[in-house]
């Protein structure tokens, strides 16, 4: 705890740059160095001092974001696999179906799309980084990258191969470009050999990348 935090009237907000100690493993680039990084801290301090936002709001938002992980989406997928009625509700109204499992999706419309033996879905946002954040958490870096956004609409099969995913030519590839308020959740195919598995065990098989559509789900290792 250094003196400057008291100087600026937010002594309770002790995690400006050291909060990573108890938050995530330190990263090589976890240091404030660029103008924009300093600007970010400046904005936070100014907006708090002016009473526009509270330090507690920012902290609560970070905690809330950290609490949302792809495991939430995996629960939705697993339920859809085992419960045909739930699956029908999921495709009819994604927000309501997610809410049944306690996941609140605000301001956007969750749209589930299903991978089948005939069609494989993959999601992108070519204009920015639209992603079902309220269900899966923050998107991976590659999802926000120019390379993925530029190429997956034009050469989706080549991009999927870079993820180790081969889609046979007789399966139709359907790329969803999230250009408005829809947020797409891919319901991947249930792997063979999982007939007797519990819903919880099935959820553990579902990966983030399979819900974006860049990967299929490996059958369980026996």
């Amino acid at each position: 705890m250094s003196a400057h935090e008291h100087d600026h009237g937010h002594a309770d907000d002790h995690d400006d740059h050291r909060g990573h100690d108890h938050n995530a493993p330190p990263q090589p680039d976890d240091k404030v160095h660029s103008y924009y990084q300093i600007l970010g801290i400046a904005l936070k301090e100014l907006l708090i001092e002016k009473g526009i936002v509270a330090a507690a709001d920012v902290r609560r938002n970070i905690e809330a974001r950290d609490a949302i992980t792809p495991a939430n989406g995996a629960q939705v997928v697993a339920r859809a696999w085992v419960d045909p009625a739930y699956k029908a509700r999921l495709f009819a109204d994604g927000n309501a179906a997610a809410a049944e499992l306690g996941f609140v999706i605000a301001n956007t419309k969750l749209v589930a799309v299903e991978n089948t033996s005939d069609e494989h879905n993959v999601v992108v946002c070519t204009l920015c980084s639209c992603y079902p954040r309220d269900l899966l958490g923050l998107p991976p870096s590659w999802y926000k990258s120019r390379a993925y956004r530029a190429r997956v609409v034009r050469e989706p099969r080549a991009v999927l191969e870079e993820f180790g995913t081969m889609i046979p030519d007789d399966v139709r590839l359907r790329v969803h470009d999230s250009t408005a308020d829809m947020r797409f959740l891919v319901v991947p195919r249930r792997p063979v050999g999982t007939e007797g598995m519990s819903e919880e065990a099935l959820a553990a098989l579902v990966t983030r990348d399979s819900m974006i559509g860049v990967a299929a789900i490996d059958p369980p290792k026996l």
Partner: peptide, 13 residues
């Protein structure tokens, strides 16, 4: 990084 999460949290606030 924590800095990135802070920007995200600030923007949300």
């Amino acid at each position: 990084t924590f800095w990135e999460k802070q920007v995200d949290g600030l923007r949300a606030a």
